[in-house]
Write a protein that binds this DNA or RNA. Structure first.
Lengths: 219, 219
DNA sequence: TCAGACATTAAACAATGTTCATTATGTTGG
DNA sequence: CCAACATAATGAACATTGTTTAATGTCTGA
C-alpha cells in the first residue's frame, strides 16, 4: 500500500500548499484579494485544481480558521504556563491582545468576519458549559478541554482557589474577561479607536489588561 | 426656482427610497442578499438607475451606516435621560446591549463588518479626545459632541463628580466600558456564546451590565 | 499492455458590481 | 409653441467573482 500512501501524502501536501498560499495572500493582501484564482496563481495551478482538494472556498477558510485557533491556543498556553497561577489571568489577557494586534488578519478571520456556512464546532475555543442544562437538567460534559477560553476559565478558577474573591460566578467571570479583551481588539481593528494617539492607546490597553482582574474580582 | 426645488426634493425622495429598500433587504434577507439588483428590483427600477443617485454600493452602505448610528444614539440618549445621573452608565450599557441584540443586522453593519472604503468620520460615536496630543502638546477639542461614546464618557464623568472613585482615568474607563459591552454583543452575534443556554446567557449579560460600573469604579 | 481511476486544464456558467450608448422625458429660452 | 438641451431610465455589455464540466493527460494495478 505504499503507492496509495504516497498519493495520500501528496494530496495532503497539496492541501497544505493551498492553505499556505491562501494564508499568505490573506495576511499580505487581505481577504478581498484572496480569490480562488489568486490562490491558484500563487501555487501555479489552474483555478479548477483547487476544487480537487477543497469542496469550496469556505472549506479553505474553515481550515485556516482552525489553524489560526491552534496558533492562538499555543500563544495563550505558552504565556500562561510561563507564570505562576496567580498572575495567569493577566498574562493570558496580555497574550490574547498581543496575538490579535500582531496578527490582525488572523483575528479578522477568526472572530470578526461573518462566516455563515462555517461549521461552528469551535473546536478550540469553547469552554465546558456544565451549568444547569435547560432541557435535561443534568450537566453536560463537553469533550472539549484544550481551548483558549477553557484555559482562561481554568486560570480564573485557579485564582479563586488561591483565595481571590470572585464578583460573579465562574462562567460570568470568564465571559466578562473574554468580552473585555475581545471588545478592545475588535474595536481597534475596526478603526474605532483611531482618535486615540497610539502611545495613549497602548497605555489604556495596558490598564485594560490589569482591568480584567479588577473587573471580576472583589479584591 | 420652484422646479429645481421639486427636482431636488424628488431626488432626495428617490435616495431615501433606495436607502429604505436597502435597509429592508439588509434586515430581512441579510447582507449577502442585498445586491444592487435586488435593491433595484425592490423599488422597481433598473439596476443602472441606482447609480444616478449613489456613486457606488459603498456609498449606500455609508448612508445606512450613519442612519443606524443615529438610531443607536437616540436609543442611548433616551435610555440615559430617563434615569438620574448615578444610574446613567448602567442604563446606557443596558440600552447599548439591547439595541445590538434587537437589531443584529444594524450592529453587523455598524461595528462588525469590514468596510475598507468607508470614510471613517465616525461622526456619531467618537468621544472627544483631549488628552495630551503627541505632536503639538495642546489639547484638541473635537467638533463632535453628540455620539453615544461621548455620551457614555459624560455619564462616567458625572458618576465621578457624584463621588464615585474611578479606577482609571476617564478615557480608559470609557474604553473599558465600551469594550465590555461591544465584546459581549460581538461575540454573541458571531455565535461564540452558543454553548450557553439562552436563559443563562441572559443572566450573564445582566450581570455584565452591572459589571460595567464595578470594573471601572473602586466602590 | 490496457483499462480504469485520478489530476489538471481551459472553457464556460451564473451572479456580482459597474459602465455606457440609447432612448425617453421634461425643462428652458426664444 | 418649438427647438435645443439637460437629465433620468433602461437594457445591454463588461470585468471579476466562485464554481462546474468536458476533455485531456497521467499514472496505477492487473
Amino acid at each position: 500500500m505504499s503507492i496509495a500512501d504516497r498519493k495520500e501524502r501528496e494530496r495532503q501536501e497539496m492541501r497544505q500548499g493551498i492553505l499556505q498560499a491562501a494564508a499568505h495572500l490573506f495576511v499580505t493582501e487581505g481577504f478581498p484579494k484572496t480569490t480562488i484564482r489568486a490562490i491558484a496563481s500563487e501555487i501555479e495551478y489552474s483555478p479548477g485544481t483547487i476544487y480537487t482538494y477543497f469542496k469550496d472556498k469556505q472549506e479553505i477558510l474553515n481550515a485556516l480558521f482552525h489553524q489560526f485557533f491552534d496558533e492562538l491556543n499555543i500563544a495563550i498556553r505558552t504565556a500562561g504556563e510561563a507564570v505562576e497561577s496567580t498572575n495567569r489571568l493577566t498574562a493570558i489577557g496580555r497574550a490574547y491582545i498581543d496575538f490579535a494586534l500582531q496578527n490582525p488578519e488572523h483575528y479578522e478571520l477568526m472572530f470578526l468576519m461573518n462566516h455563515e456556512r462555517l461549521e461552528k464546532n469551535l473546536p478550540d475555543v469553547s469552554p465546558e458549559v456544565d451549568c444547569f442544562d435547560a432541557e435535561t437538567g443534568k450537566k453536560v460534559e463537553s469533550a472539549q478541554d484544550d481551548g483558549s477560553f477553557q484555559y482562561m476559565q481554568e486560570a480564573i478558577q485557579l485564582a479563586i482557589q488561591s483565595g481571590r474573591q470572585p464578583r460573579y460566578d465562574l462562567h460570568t467571570s470568564t465571559l466578562l474577561a473574554w468580552s473585555l479583551v475581545h471588545g478592545i481588539v475588535a474595536l481597534h481593528i475596526r478603526g474605532f479607536l483611531q482618535m486615540y494617539p497610539p502611545d495613549y492607546l497602548q497605555i489604556m490597553i495596558h490598564h485594560a489588561v490589569d482591568g480584567i482582574s479588577s473587573s471580576i474580582f472583589l479584591d
